[in-house]
Amino acid sequence: MPEQINPLVERIGLSMWRVQKRIASGIALNVELGLTFPQFSLLNMIAREGRARVVTLAERMEVKSSAVTVMLDRMEAVGLVRREQDENDRRAVVVSLTEKGENVRSEGHRRSLVLLEEHLSILTPEELAQFADCYDLLDRQKR
């Protein structure tokens, strides 16, 4: 017998998916910044690492290294990232952001926060605090 799903859980899941989709499409990274959403995510990962190995990025994105390589080829062609041989392992490649890459990442981040703020503006300050507390709780949950 299949396990019953709480209707509230289903409702929350569907609402989260719809809102996330609306926000992600509203960022308009592709048109205005020349990036796809996965490329923007990759820029953020590289920024967090400082210098990131391609295999590490692929693991985090849960894709093959070849998929990351294709994205990096495009991003390198427009001057967002640079690739270098790893000093410790000549077979490995490390990636870092260029100044242009950091500027594009920073602008994309700013735009996404502005859009998120617009979507959340329907909440009162108290509701916004409760919402943030709930997400913090979910974020701290063991995976």
Results as ranks from 00 to 15, higher is better:
R82N: 12
R140H: 07
V93Q: 14
E10K: 12
Q85C: 08
D136F: 12
S41M: 09
P125L: 02
V78Q: 13
R48Q: 08
E127Y: 00
I5M: 11
L14S: 13
V81R: 02
A58R: 01
T98A: 10
L35I: 04
V68F: 00
E126T: 09
E107I: 04
N30H: 15
R111G: 03
L8C: 05
L14E: 15
S121Q: 08
I27E: 04
L57M: 08
I46L: 06
R51I: 00
L80I: 07
R11E: 15
E117A: 15
D73I: 01
L97P: 07
E102L: 13
V31D: 15
L120R: 01
H119R: 05
E32M: 06
L120W: 02
I5W: 04
R140I: 04
R91W: 07
R48L: 05
K64N: 10
L138I: 07
V70C: 01
P38I: 03
A24Q: 04
S65N: 01
L57R: 02
R22Y: 01
R90N: 03
G101W: 01
A28H: 13
M16W: 06
K21A: 12
D133V: 04
A47F: 05
F40E: 05
R51L: 09
I122A: 12
T36F: 01
L137C: 13
G101C: 05
E118M: 05
M71C: 00
I122V: 15
V94K: 05
E118P: 00
R53Y: 03
L35H: 04
D139I: 06
L29I: 09
I23K: 07
A132G: 06
Y135H: 10
A77Q: 14
L128T: 04
P125A: 01
I46G: 04
G108R: 01
E10D: 13
R60G: 11
K100P: 03
S106M: 10
M1D: 13
R110E: 11
L123N: 03
L128M: 12
R91D: 15
R11T: 14
G79L: 07
L123H: 05
L138V: 09
G108F: 00
E10Q: 14
L72T: 02
M71L: 13
L116M: 10
G34L: 09
